[in-house]
């Protein structure tokens, strides 16, 4: 689990703690399988949450620029709906056939569930929880490096 600081860098926002409970203890899912997670957010006492975004995404890591693919995204900003999403909520989604999680040498593909909270004054907080899709073994190393 990673909990980066505010992405807009304006001022230090509240730092809640997000606990994510996956329906599979090993967090390894087959492509096309249903993913169900329940999250609980602590540390929101006295803080007004303006909106929450919940997403299931894949992103690349490694030498190259980061690419992002969004498989599931929803944003809850209506006051009436926020009660069902904060401080706890559920995400249930069927995973796609690809891309599979991959631990390459210069290219890595990772899947994660993200919960992003928005407070007043354009401040936000994101919590990211990695899981795996598929069972591709990591690349063993470089056979040849090309210019």
């Amino acid at each position: 689990m990673t909990e980066p600081e505010a992405s807009n860098g304006v001022a230090k926002p509240p730092t809640p703690r997000v606990a994510m409970h996956f329906d599979r203890a090993d967090r390894v899912y087959a492509p096309g399988q249903e993913l169900a997670v329940r999250y609980e957010i602590d540390g929101l006492a006295g803080v007004v949450v303006a909106a929450v975004e919940r997403s299931v995404v894949w992103y690349t890591e490694g030498k190259g620029e980061e690419d992002l693919g969004v498989h599931h995204f929803d944003r809850v900003d209506a006051v009436s709906a926020l009660a069902a999403a904060v401080p706890s909520g559920e995400i249930v989604v069927r995973l796609p056939a690809s891309p599979l999680s991959y631990e390459g040498v210069i290219v890595k593909v990772r899947w994660c569930v993200r919960v992003r909270l928005f407070f007043g004054g354009r401040r936000d907080f994101v919590s990211e929880h990695v899981f795996e899709v598929g069972d591709v073994p990591p690349a063993r190393g470089v056979v040849e490096r090309l210019a």
Partner: peptide, 17 residues
Amino acid sequence: ASFRQGTDTRTERAIVW
């Protein structure tokens, strides 16, 4: 993997298997 280095865009290639 392609990435920016200053104003250049570079591509690194590796045979992994």
